[in-house]
């Protein structure tokens, strides 16, 4: 009996929610191509074409990005902070589905998280895990470490909560743990670069 109920849960609401989560992450995640072998991911941060990714994913002045709808677009590098391993790219288009950034302060170890990316070039792969540890540097958010299976190609892609809110950008794997740069750190990087969200621009 219990097994049937669990199977129904997994096949019903739980499975449906996970695929819904994957769908929503797929729409805001781009596949970043640089050169012949470069694979990485990026997150559509603003609907006006601003994409954030890792600096190591976008080492040059530009890249090609593939959107979830299949379009391949040329992207121009608009900001880069190698120290924090962050870069911002812009594609010429509008009306893109944009990420909803999550907070850092309310997060707790044990919370479920999902990552979408292109590990080893495999397109749009979903991984799930939990938050392992939240670290700060002098009081400001430093890393979200996650107990999740990531690989090269996940870099620059979203680490999200169960609602699809982007908690951070997956950046590196160390000791088996995924390290994500928290969303508030990404926001700070964009501010420092003088980039302003579409709604806040002066007419």
């Amino acid at each position: 009996m219990a097994a049937h109920r669990l199977a129904a849960l997994a096949a019903g609401p739980l499975g449906a929610e996970l695929s819904g989560l994957a769908d929503s992450l797929r729409r805001i995640t781009v596949h970043v191509h640089t050169g012949r072998w470069g694979h990485g991911s990026g997150v559509i941060w603003w609907g006006d074409g601003l994409i954030v990714t890792n600096a190591h994913v976008a080492p040059g002045a530009g890249a090609q990005v593939r959107l979830a709808d299949g379009r391949m677009l040329d992207a121009r590098l608009v900001a880069r902070e190698p120290d924090r391993d962050l870069a911002a790219l812009r594609v010429i288009t509008t009306g893109l589905p944009a990420a909803v950034p999550g907070e850092f302060d309310g997060l707790r170890p044990g919370e479920l998280v999902a990552a979408l990316g292109h590990p080893y070039g495999v397109p749009e792969a979903l991984s799930i895990g939990v938050i392992h540890e939240l670290t700060r540097d002098h009081g400001t958010p430093a890393w979200i470490r996650a107990d999740i299976r990531l690989a090269p190609g996940n870099s620059g892609g979203p680490l999200a909560d169960v609602y699809g809110r982007v908690l951070g950008l997956n950046t590196l794997v160390a000791g088996g743990l995924g390290f994500a740069i928290p969303a508030p750190v990404v926001a700070g990087f964009l501010r420092r670069a003088g980039l302003v969200p579409p709604g806040e621009r002066a007419a």
Binding site: P13, L14, G20, S24, I28, L112, V162, G164
Partner: peptide, 13 residues
Amino acid sequence: MTTSAPGQTSVLA
């Protein structure tokens, strides 16, 4: 773009 509002009931949440 999120799957559901944080207030909604969800097995995953």
